[in-house]
Amino acid sequence: MQTIGIIAKQADPRAMKAACELTTWLQQQGLDVFVADSLANCIEVPAKPLDEIASHVELMVVLGGDGTLLQTGRCFVDADVPILGINLGRLGFLTDTPLSNMFDVMKDVLAGQFKVKKHFALQVDVQRDGQTISSGVAMNDVVLQRNDHPRMIEFEMYARQQLVFRLRADGLVLATPAGSTAYALSAGGAIVHPEIQAISVVPICPHTVSNRPIILPAYDEIQLKLIDSPAPAALNLDGQVHSTLNMGDDIHIKRAGDITLVYLEHWHYFDVLRNKLGWAGQQ
């Protein structure tokens, strides 16, 4: 690897300081550095917009929490550029490397002592009166939910062009395996191993005791139709990209491409679950 990209959580002094220190260290190793344009004013190296930087780098380093990594990952779908997350956030399922280990981990990665895992994303298109009004990509989850009104919404879900259910609820989470430990888990969904190609379907406070989370094959195309809402509802991608929905809107969700994340050779998924979720048997 000769060219490294860096992005840091905005308005976070620790992240900005770490980005400056990492840039200097990488340059001392004789490597070329690009930064996301959000860092252009504080680091004197070439800067690129986040949605363009993937074509210029061989490794992307994310300094922040899972939110910063999700923002980055959506711009790296099918780029085949590995992303290394350095955790400055809270839980950090995706950004697993602590800041205190940053330079040691970078040495291992630059020496080729790492492995990669691919996580698929979801492509989302919203249609109104037969016209596509918005499109986007989610790495963790797609969430249909009531917006700022207190009443439930009603919607239908289809898979393989067949009706799955019609439901009144506060909303619905469609999660990738990477997102199964996020909002979907809080809503009662299962933890899905990242090597399983599946989409979790998790209702949020459904108005029926018989409706339960289900798991669908990742290659199934899913359609949601907003049937009733006392006010405009909301669609959120990774909790970061927001759209307003009207009654009658259709949301089409399908598997998108892959996002490549870096892990150290000793990394194991169940170690992460034990440590992050506080399960018994921590080592």
Rank of each mutant, 00 (worst) to 15 (best):
L172G: 08
L163T: 14
A18R: 13
F76N: 02
E21L: 12
S134Y: 14
A169W: 06
A231E: 08
D125W: 09
E221S: 14
H266K: 13
A11R: 12
T176M: 12
A40T: 10
I86D: 11
Y263M: 07
K225F: 01
G89L: 08
P82S: 03
L22N: 00
W25M: 03
G85E: 06
T132Y: 08
D12C: 14
D78M: 03
V35K: 04
D228E: 14
E156H: 09
D228N: 15
A178E: 09
W25Y: 04
T181M: 12
K115W: 01
A182D: 02
L167G: 00
P217H: 06
L144P: 13
G189L: 10
P177Q: 06
V116P: 04
T3P: 10
A280D: 09
G239P: 07
M102V: 09
S186F: 02
R90I: 10
M16E: 15
T97K: 00
H119C: 14
L261Y: 07
G248A: 07
T244E: 14
I199L: 13
G171P: 13
L50F: 00
F165M: 03
D129Q: 15
G30H: 00
K225C: 07
L273A: 04
L226W: 04
L122M: 15
T3Y: 02
S243Y: 15
A111W: 10
P46Y: 04
H207V: 01
V137Y: 12
T97Q: 15
L39P: 01
F155K: 00
G85T: 07
I133N: 14
Q28R: 05
S186D: 03
L110N: 14
M152A: 13
A15D: 10
I43C: 01
G64F: 05
A182I: 08
A8W: 08
A218H: 05
L50Y: 06
D125E: 13
L99K: 03
T176G: 13
V62M: 01
T132K: 09
N211K: 06
K115P: 05
D108I: 09
V143H: 11
E58T: 05
A138W: 05
Q123R: 08
G85H: 07
V35C: 05
N246K: 12
G188W: 03
V116M: 05
W267S: 15
T23K: 06
P98A: 02
G5Y: 06
L237P: 01
P150H: 09
Q131M: 07
Q113C: 10
S135W: 09
R14P: 07
K48C: 00
P49G: 05
T68Q: 00
P206D: 09
V142G: 11
L144S: 10
M60W: 03
P82C: 01
W267N: 13
